[in-house]
Computed example of a mutant assay.
Amino acid sequence: MRLDKFLCKSTALCKQEAIQSIHAKDVTVNGVVVTDASTQVHENNTVLLNGERLKARDFRYILMHKPAGTVCSNVDEVYPSLFRYLNVDKVSELHIVGRLDVDTTGLVLVTDDGRWSFDITRPSNGCQKVYRVQLSRPMSSESAQVVADTFLKGVLLQGEAKLTLPATMEQIAPHEVRLTITEGRFHQVKRMFAAVGNRVVSLHREQIGNLRLDVVTEQWRYLTLKEVESFRNHSN
């Protein structure tokens, strides 16, 4: 974690105030004055501010049910921020783990633990994201099998040089499927179905890893310790 961020997480200082304290030589790390705000510090380092040892607040891990018409951002943009529904202190320290489009609904994870979110979003870790997909064109069982086989092999999205990683698709109804992917390219699900001649009408994320969405729209809850640990070095 950057030193200025560590100060913000362990005091009431804002980022600018933290940087000022560092430049003023008020901060030591393991007994050495540090004036570079970007210096990386770890849990086992001894960080003092004006001689007082600092301890970062515990990381937060949150599950939210994103409604349509919101953006996965800390601030309002053209559409309102998802964080409008999150009533917690220091919300600016949080970030969203794997963003969803404005019109996509469902499971979103929120945290201030960068290493944890990296484990979830890194494609090589194979963390599965499960989507329920409504399509504009119905598929017979035969055509659905062809699409499923195509996704399992990987498809070439428009404008990209590499195939998508293997994905699994289960047909629920002629217009509805469940798709499981392990990466998060830009508009990936929509582009995958466009590549096979169909169009996504609505998209809902219902699961990440072993964690299923269990709160109603606009609601949120903290994850349990067991749920948090299930994503450490995820390799499913």
Rank of each mutant, 00 (worst) to 15 (best):
67 P>G: 01
105 T>F: 10
164 T>F: 07
140 S>G: 15
115 R>N: 14
128 Q>N: 12
62 I>V: 09
115 R>A: 11
36 D>T: 10
79 Y>M: 04
228 V>T: 12
187 H>P: 09
193 F>M: 01
132 R>G: 03
44 N>E: 14
216 V>M: 10
20 Q>G: 02
198 N>C: 02
187 H>T: 02
234 H>I: 13
84 R>I: 05
226 K>M: 10
42 H>A: 14
150 T>Y: 07
38 S>N: 15
117 S>I: 02
91 V>R: 15
233 N>P: 05
36 D>G: 00
106 G>S: 05
197 G>H: 06
175 H>I: 01
54 L>W: 06
183 E>G: 03
201 V>R: 12
14 C>D: 15
192 M>T: 12
104 T>Q: 01
89 D>T: 14
80 P>S: 07
177 V>Y: 03
213 L>W: 02
189 V>G: 06
42 H>S: 13
174 P>I: 05
138 P>E: 04
203 L>P: 01
140 S>C: 02
176 E>D: 13
202 S>Y: 09
66 K>D: 02
25 K>C: 15
205 R>Y: 05
229 E>H: 13
201 V>A: 12
35 T>M: 10
170 E>L: 09
163 L>G: 03
89 D>F: 06
32 V>N: 11
208 I>R: 00
53 R>A: 06
146 V>Y: 10
112 D>P: 02
131 Y>D: 08
65 H>Y: 10
3 L>Y: 08
24 A>Y: 04
209 G>F: 04
143 S>N: 08
117 S>F: 04
144 A>F: 06
99 R>H: 09
25 K>H: 14
230 S>F: 01
222 Y>T: 11
163 L>V: 08
171 Q>G: 06
107 L>T: 00
229 E>N: 15
8 C>V: 14
53 R>Y: 02
225 L>F: 04
202 S>P: 06
185 R>Q: 05
130 V>H: 07
117 S>Q: 05
164 T>S: 08
159 G>T: 14
126 G>W: 06
211 L>Q: 05
85 Y>P: 06
46 T>Q: 13
165 L>V: 09
174 P>N: 08
173 A>V: 13
33 V>H: 12
129 K>Y: 04
134 Q>T: 04
121 T>Q: 12
166 P>K: 08
47 V>I: 15
71 V>Y: 10
88 V>F: 09
85 Y>G: 09
140 S>A: 04
7 L>F: 03
146 V>H: 13
61 Y>H: 14
32 V>R: 12
152 L>R: 15
118 F>M: 13
125 N>E: 08
159 G>I: 04
73 S>D: 10
49 L>T: 05
25 K>I: 08
95 H>L: 09
145 Q>V: 00
115 R>W: 08
19 I>S: 03
158 Q>R: 14
85 Y>I: 02
108 V>R: 01
224 T>L: 04
140 S>M: 08
191 R>P: 04
39 T>D: 00
233 N>C: 12
41 V>R: 11
